[in-house]
Amino acid sequence: MSIQLENVNYIYGESSGQEKWALKNINLTLHDNEFVGIVGHTGSGKSTLTQLLNGLEKPSSGQILYNGQDIQAEGFSKKELRRKAGLVFQYPEHQLFEVSVIKDVEFGPRNLGLTNLEVEKRSFDALKQVGISDELLDVAPFALSGGQKRRVAIAGVLAMQPEVLILDEPTAGLDPAGRTEILELLQRLHRENNISVILVSHSMDDVARYAERILVMNQGELVLDGAPEKVFRYRKELREIGLDVPQSANILYELRDRGMDVDTNGITPEQAAQNIADYLRRQS
């Protein structure tokens, strides 16, 4: 699996005369089995980008290639693309509609025209993977808690067995525990099932810990692209567009600025603490 974007532009409201560039000249290659974080503010174009990736929106100009094939070409199956590039929207309320959790998850695989047995098997597996226990299977999805709804929504896409899982702000509105739970789940799916994960978020802290590669968007443009440690070196530039580096990395950089020679490659608090300890040991 690889997704390639070449000179992609997206313009809103061309017909009404009030044009707005949501995406400006995006060039990007997403590789197989990557955990990519897309970070940016509201209106930076990150949500539009996710919808281009699975063909829900059409770029105003430019090309998107999935495994080298142009997704806008005639004869390219959008349905197949949406199965392979599974997109989970921000609010689970936008997709849950069935009378029970299991039936809702079955909606996706059933649309693929699979046999009943296969549909049920995939749905059970998906729910197990996201950690929904058996006694919740027959509960109405609207009766679940926020975190549970989100996991059911993820299962609904997972049951279609995508090659890449794209999630738009999956942690918005969750408490810290729920947030960690979802992010750990994504990491586990990435490692155990070998699927690519594209995680869209406005919080650098969320993304930094789990993503192997970070894309920073600002006002429709891709401004930074690289491994987290590499991206955080541009602390000043990030601050200018209103994004912060994770708190632990921030502390390391501040210490460095004040003359302590600590290793600034530390994203998690544990790493940061280790780096500081190493420095102190070297000093004594």
């Binding site: 919808q51 699975n54 829900l56 349905k79 949406r82 199965r83 599974g86 997109l87 989970v88 929207f89 609010y91 936008h94 997709q95 909606f107 996706g108 649309n111 693929l112 609904g156 896409v157 279609m160």
Partner: peptide, 16 residues
């Protein structure tokens, strides 16, 4: 706007 979002969310799950 909400209709648009829901349609997209269901189309992502293969709805037609």
């Amino acid at each position: 706007e909400e209709t648009d979002k829901i349609m997209k969310a269901q189309m992502s799950r293969g709805a037609d």
